[in-house]
């Protein structure tokens, strides 16, 4: 299973990186004449009532999918294939960046709480518990309301180098969403890091190092942190998937600040689910595959890094 996970994950990463080359047309380009075209190989017929020469008739419209739009188009005639490729960029960027921010802040808090213990521990961890008491999505929406939907335009290096003409020149990173998903998820890192720090600080090598005059900062960063990393790495992997889901939920609800996102696309096709089902289904499948891939890799990492299992049951 780990192989499947790695293939999926590497696939998502490659797609996100090389989206300008893989896309058939700019993801934002609208073409209202080509709206609601089904994926290649499928035909879609709709009956509508029209008045031809003053008579009421039932006209059957048949639209044929073609390789021009391999996964069809949406209501605005945008190419779903290209939009899904670019959506991978948003999901992955928010997922990874959000996890990194959550990890850095959570591990810092957890390490300090676990290492010093006592009142410091109580104070920090009770605050973390309070954060946990809020439902993640509600907290995220409240925070976005507070901060406003800021975005960051990052120039696309491929386009800037003239390798992919016609594609969007910048990539829109939803800053607020990235920050908010990190704020919602840092608690998990704090808890894990604290638990590990509590165990590791009792180890003899920490005491030995202290008896040689090492400072608390040195003990934390050189001895406690490196020996606490394993579960933190595993958690980080899983959190990328959790954050991708959270980002999709937020952009589905329209809070993302970018309109190139899987969740946003799902929302666009929501009203047309009965007729043009592919508009929502394609980005939905993309989310499923990305999350499954990351989770499988996370499971494998957990087994591989667990000395009790020895990495053999990981399937690699």
């Amino acid at each position: 299973m780990a192989k499947v996970g790695i293939v999926l994950l590497v696939g998502v990463i490659l797609v996100a990186t090389f989206a300008p080359f893989l896309a058939t047309q700019p993801p934002q380009e609208q073409n209202l004449e080509d709206s609601n075209i089904p994926p290649a190989g499928l035909t879609y017929s709709s009956e509508e009532i029209a008045f031809v020469d003053g008579e009421r008739q039932t006209v059957t419209n048949t639209v044929q999918g073609s390789l021009d739009h391999p996964l069809g188009t949406n209501q605005l005639g945008q190419d779903i294939y290209s939009r899904t490729l670019y959506g991978a960029r948003t999901s992955l960027a928010v997922g990874v960046l959000g996890t990194v921010i959550a990890l850095l802040s959570g591990v810092t808090v957890g390490l300090i709480a676990g290492f010093y213990g006592g009142r410091v521990d109580d104070g920090l961890m009770r605050f973390a518990d309070i954060m946990l008491a809020f439902p993640a999505l509600v907290l995220a929406i409240a925070l976005i309301g507070l901060l406003g939907p800021r975005t960051l335009e990052i120039p696309d290096p491929f386009v800037a180098a003239g390798l992919a003409d016609g594609m969007p020149e910048t990539f829109t990173l939803p800053l607020t969403v990235t920050l908010v998903v990190a704020l919602v998820n840092w608690v998990w890192f704090a808890r894990i890091a604290r638990g590990e720090a509590l165990t590791v600080r009792e180890k003899n090598y920490v005491k030995a190092s202290r008896s040689l005059g090492a400072s608390n900062r040195r003990l934390m960063l050189k001895h406690v942190l490196p020996n606490s990393l394993t579960p933190i790495i595993v958690l980080a992997t899983i959190q990328v998937a959790v954050i991708i889901l959270l980002e999709s939920s937020l952009s589905f609800l329209g809070f993302s600040g970018t309109n190139l996102s899987w969740g946003f696309d799902i929302n666009q096709g929501r009203d047309l689910l009965a007729t043009s089902w592919w508009i929502s289904t394609v980005p939905g499948l993309a989310i499923v595959l990305a999350v499954i891939g990351i989770n499988l890799v996370g499971d494998w990492l957990r087994d591989a890094l667990d000395p009790d299992i020895g990495g053999e049951r990981g399937g690699m």
Binding site: Y205, A208, S211, G213
Partner: peptide, 17 residues
Amino acid sequence: RGPSFSMIFQDPESSFN
């Protein structure tokens, strides 16, 4: 600690990181 006092512990295996 270090320049004036230092300590050798009982169990060397667990006293190294």
